[in-house]
Every structure is written in C-alpha cells, then in structure tokens.
C-alpha cells in the first residue's frame, strides 16, 4: 500500500512537469485530469481500514475531476478551435528552469514548515509543487483554457495538502475544496462562454484594453 502511495506521489510530481511543458490545451486538460484522479485516490490508499464515507467521497471526486471537468473543458476547446494552439512565449529551457526552481522552493518550504505526516514524506512538497505550478500556469499563459487548467491544478494541490495534513476531519475540508472548484469551473465556463460571445476572443491579453489609464 505504501509503495503504491509513494509512486502516486511521484506521479503527481511528474504531472506537474508535463503541465509546464505542454502547450496544447487538450494535453493540459488531460494531465490536469490525471493529476486530479491521482490526488483523489491518495487518501483511499493511505488509510489502512476501509471507510465507506471516504471511499464514496473519493469516487465522487474521481468522477468530477476525471470525467466531468474534462468534458466541460473539451467542449470549450472544441468551440474555439482556431485558438487551440497556446504555445507559450518562452522556450523549453526556461520551462525546465522554472520547474526546478519550483521544486526547490517547495522542498524548502516544507522543510521550514515541518509538518508531520504519517509515512509519505514527499506528499507535502508534492502538494506545494502542484500549487506553485498551477500559479505559474495562470501567470505565464495567456490562453483562457490554460488559466482554467492552472486554477484546477492549484485546487489539486490544495486538495492534496488537505488530505495529507487534516487527519481528523478530512471530509469537511475536502468537501469545501471540492465545492470551491466546482463552482469555480462552473462560473469560469459560463464566463468564458459569455466573454467569447461578446468579444470574439478568449485571450486574456486583450483584456488589458479595458484598463482605466
């Protein structure tokens, strides 16, 4: 059990790597979904006894993150077919540099914060890394789908962190996070639809036209 959990954590870390490298929106959505499923499966595997509530909840989350959200996002991608190429402005070397710096930052942070986790020593750095890569996705990419994906990756990281640290009441925290992301994706989906209908474009660079001065 523990070995599988450790592998899953490793897989999460590598998902981040792929996320930072890929620039096709469908790839982004795919990796986000994979990461979401992995982090949802983690608490199931880490606990020794079988809890009905936790497993039911985990199945819900897997359904949402693995099936429902990618469906919504793929519909958005299909509608905006001409903008599906979201190549970032920076080269691959810089992506690697960013990835490594995020890695070191998260390791340092978890060392300073000194959380005690049960056996999975790498889960805290992994969650921090996921959070930071999500943030990087939002900041450095201008395409809307990238931003939504970045937000979902952020939520993945928070979910992972929550499942690691909150031993006593994981359900409440995770339900809150889930509600958060559900509403956010919902709202963002609607917003993208309306923005696209209004402005014929979903590139967030163009939004700076609206500034005041």
């Amino acid at each position: 059990m523990e070995i599988i959990s450790q592998f899953i954590v490793l897989a999460v870390i590598f998902c981040n790597f792929f996320l930072l490298y890929s620039y096709s929106p469908s790839e982004l959505v795919k990796f986000t979904a994979i990461q979401g499923v992995l982090t949802a499966a983690l608490p199931l595997l880490s606990s020794s006894e079988f809890e009905y509530q936790a497993s039911a909840f985990a199945i819900c989350v897997i359904f949402l993150k693995g099936f429902f959200f990618p469906l919504v996002l793929n519909r958005i991608i299909k509608k905006n077919v001409q903008y599906s190429n979201g190549k970032p402005h920076y080269s691959g070397a810089i992506s690697a540099l960013l990835y490594l710096s995020v890695f070191f930052l998260s390791v340092w942070l978890s060392a300073r914060l000194a959380f005690e986790t049960k056996a999975l020593a790498w889960i805290i750095p992994a969650s921090f890394m996921t959070i930071f890569s999500g943030l990087l996705l939002i900041i450095l990419r201008s395409q809307t789908v990238s931003q939504i994906a970045g937000y979902m990756v952020l939520e993945n990281g928070i979910y992972c962190f929550g499942s690691a640290v909150f031993v006593n009441q994981p359900l409440m925290v995770e339900a809150a996070i889930l509600l958060d992301i559900f509403v956010a994706v919902f709202v963002m989906g609607m917003a993208v639809f309306h923005i696209e209908r209004e402005f014929d474009d979903i590139d967030s660079e163009k939004l700076s036209e609206l500034k005041e001065v």
Binding site: L135, I138, I139, L140, R141, S142, Q147, S204, E205, L207, S208, E209, L210, K211, E212, V213
Partner: peptide, 20 residues
C-alpha cells in the same frame, strides 16, 4: 495616486502574480 497607476497595467496575469 496617479503616479502609481503603472502598477495597474490591465494585465490579468500580472495581478495573479501580485497575489502570489
């Protein structure tokens, strides 16, 4: 205050960076 208006560039991602 207008002298500091350069902070508000209108760029959404820059704002998220500020938050970070």
């Amino acid at each position: 205050a207008l002298r500091f208006s350069f902070i508000q560039s209108g760029n959404l991602r820059l704002y998220v960076f500020y938050i970070f």
